[in-house]
Simulated assay, not measured.
Amino acid sequence: MKPWILGLTGGIGSGKSAVAQHFVDLGVHLVDADHAARWVVEPGRPALAKIVEHFGGDVLQADGQLDRSALRARIFADSDERRWLEALLHPLIGQEIIAYLARAESPYAILVSPLLIESGQHRLTQRVLLVDAPEQLQIQRTIARDQSSAEQVQAILKAQASRSERLQHAHDVLVNDRDLHWLQAEVERLHNFYLTLRGGQT
């Protein structure tokens, strides 16, 4: 039987990576949309050539790899440029994700994506799990992890889907405001529940 697909999302600093890792430890096949996004812009892939043609050579590192921070700076400053890039990459990323999930051997597979809702990737899934956290906690965690400033984190939070929009699409919500031990126990509880579902529906 083909595995059904669970979409896993959450804002920056919500702890979705820790949740994703625990699902993997439990033997669930998982693809990360961020990894798929990296695969499609590797040197030699057509997307990278189009990006360089559009933005110029200063979005490349000396070794020919994409300079993500240079590109990010360009698209955060200009929403038209961001939309151009999304229109190029989203369909390609979708194809990578579908191909990878098709190889899953677990009863369900997981697509982890910070932009699951905004990018329309939730349409590839049968069910959505949202990892949520109070905004103050998201900001604290992200600053600690990335050494970024509070302003940068606020800007990223604004660009991501609003909490209410995410909650609207979520079938399950995991509020990650306690410790890792508690979080892992919650993941195990959800995993056992997901194993009872057919096609992701109750």
Rank of each mutant, 00 (worst) to 15 (best):
W4L: 12
W4Y: 15
I5E: 08
L6Q: 04
G7C: 07
G7Y: 14
L8I: 05
L8G: 02
T9E: 07
G10K: 12
G11F: 02
I12S: 00
G13A: 11
S14I: 12
S14G: 04
S14Q: 09
G15P: 08
G15S: 05
K16D: 02
S17W: 12
S17T: 15
A18F: 04
A18M: 06
V19P: 01
Q21S: 14
Q21L: 11
F23C: 00
V24I: 13
V24Q: 11
D25H: 11
L26W: 09
L26V: 05
G27M: 06
G27I: 02
V28E: 06
V28M: 03
H29P: 08
H29N: 14
H29M: 13
L30F: 06
L30N: 01
A33L: 08
A33H: 02
D34R: 08
H35F: 10
H35M: 07
H35V: 13
H35T: 09
H35C: 02
A36F: 07
A36V: 02
A37T: 12
A37P: 07
R38P: 07
R38Q: 15
R38F: 10
R38G: 12
R38H: 15
W39K: 10
W39N: 10
V40L: 04
V40C: 00
V40P: 00
V41Q: 03
V41P: 04
E42I: 10
E42C: 12
P43S: 01
P43C: 08
P43Y: 06
R45K: 15
R45W: 05
A47I: 10
L48I: 00
L48M: 02
L48W: 01
A49F: 14
K50V: 09
K50I: 08
I51P: 09
I51T: 06
V52T: 08
H54A: 11
G57S: 15
D58L: 06
Q61W: 08
Q61D: 04
D63T: 09
D63V: 06
Q65C: 14
Q65S: 13
L66A: 03
D67Y: 00
D67T: 07
R68C: 01
R68L: 03
R68P: 00
S69Q: 13
A70D: 02
L71T: 03
R72S: 14
A73E: 11
A73L: 12
R74M: 05
I75V: 15
F76E: 09
F76A: 09
F76D: 13
A77V: 03
D78P: 00
D80G: 13
E81N: 02
E81H: 06
R83I: 01
R83F: 04
R83H: 07
L85F: 02
E86Y: 01
A87W: 02
A87Q: 14
A87T: 10
L88T: 09
L89P: 01
L89A: 03
H90W: 08
H90R: 07
G94N: 11
G94T: 14
Q95K: 15
I97K: 12
I98Y: 08
S106I: 03
P107Q: 03
P107F: 01
Y108A: 06
Y108D: 04
I110Y: 11
L111V: 10
L111S: 14
V112K: 14
V112N: 13
S113P: 08
S113C: 14
P114M: 04
P114H: 02
L115N: 06
L116I: 14
I117N: 14
E118T: 10
E118G: 11
E118V: 10
G120Y: 07
Q121Y: 15
Q121A: 15
